[in-house]
C-alpha cells in the first residue's frame, strides 16, 4: 500500500482567458519509509503539489489516493479527519499559535482526535514529543520566547502529535541556521527510517544527501 498516489494531477489558476498551469499532468506514488525531496525553481508548483497532497487545496484534474482511499469520494469532514490523523504539516513560518505555550501548541491536533479520552494522556504525549525534539526545558514557553530553531521543533512535535504516517514539510528550514537545518533534516530522516513517508519541499542543497528520492518540478511538470 502506498502512502500517497497521485494520478494525472493538474492545477490551473486564473480566469478562462488567462490561465496559469501550476501543475500539469503529474503522476507519482509515494511509499512509506522513504524521504522524498521536491525541488524546483520558485513558481514551479512545489507548494501547490504539497497542498493538494495535504488536502488543503483541490486539484483541477486527476486523482489522489491516500492510503489507497480515493480522496474524491471523501466528504469534507472525512478529509479533515485525514488531515488530523494521517498527515502532519511542517512549514517555514512555523505557524504556531502565539497565545499558547509550546506544550499547548502540540496538544491542539490531539484535542479533536477521539482516540484520546483523557487530557492527561494528551499532555503526556505532548511532553514526550517535546522531549524527543530536545525542548523539555521549554514546554511552558510561548513562541515569542523561543528561537527560530526551537519554534520549528515545536512545529515538528505538533506535526507528530497524532502519530501520522505522512509528513508534508514545506521549506521547513527556510528560516533556520545551518545547525538547526541539519537537526531538522536528520530528524525527518530518522522518521522516514521509522517507516513514515516524508515529503519535503526544499531549496537547500544539503537536503539532497538525506533524500531517498528527489523529485524535480519545472513549470508544473515532473522532470
Amino acid at each position: 500500500m502506498s502512502a500517497i498516489k497521485i494520478k494525472n494531477i493538474s492545477k490551473e489558476y486564473g480566469t478562462k482567458n488567462k490561465k496559469v498551469h501550476a501543475l500539469d499532468n503529474i503522476t507519482k506514488e509515494f511509499q512509506y519509509g522513504k524521504f522524498y525531496l521536491i525541488t524546483g525553481h520558485s513558481g514551479s508548483g512545489k507548494t501547490t503539489l504539497l497542498k493538494i497532497m495535504g488536502l488543503v487545496d483541490n486539484e483541477t484534474k486527476g486523482e489522489i489516493f491516500i492510503k489507497d482511499k480515493d480522496v474524491a469520494k471523501l466528504s469534507v469532514k472525512e478529509k479533515a479527519e485525514i488531515r488530523n490523523k494521517e498527515i502532519g504539516f511542517i512549514f517555514q513560518e512555523f505557524y504556531l499559535d502565539k497565545y499558547l505555550t509550546a506544550l499547548e501548541n502540540v496538544t491542539i491536533p490531539m484535542l479533536i482526535n477521539k482516540k484520546y479520552k483523557d487530557y492527561s494522556e494528551i499532555k503526556k504525549r505532548s511532553t514526550d514529543l517535546l522531549k524527543q525534539v530536545g525542548l523539555e526545558s521549554r514546554i511552558k514557553h510561548f513562541p515569542k520566547e523561543l528561537s527560530g530553531g526551537e519554534q520549528e521543533r515545536v512545529a515538528i512535535a505538533r506535526a507528530l502529535a497524532n502519530n501520522p504516517d505522512i509528513i508534508l514539510a514545506d521549506e521547513p528550514t527556510g528560516n533556520l541556521d545551518i545547525a538547526n537545518e541539519e537537526y531538522v533534516f536528520e530528524y525527518l530522516k530518522k522518521l522516514s527510517e521509522e517507516g513514515k513517508c516524508i515529503i519535503m519541499v526544499s531549496h537547500s542543497k544539503d537536503a539532497l544527501k538525506y533524500a531517498d528520492e528527489v523529485i524535480e518540478l519545472k513549470e508544473g511538470k515532473l522532470l
Binding site: V56, V76, K77, A80, I82, R83, Y95, I112, R158
Partner: peptide, 16 residues
C-alpha cells in the same frame, strides 16, 4: 487568518 489556516491544516473541520 493564520489561525484559521492552521486549524484547517491540523484537521479542524468548520464545525470544530
Amino acid at each position: 487568518k493564520e489561525n484559521n489556516m492552521l486549524n484547517k491544516l491540523l484537521g479542524y473541520s468548520n464545525k470544530n
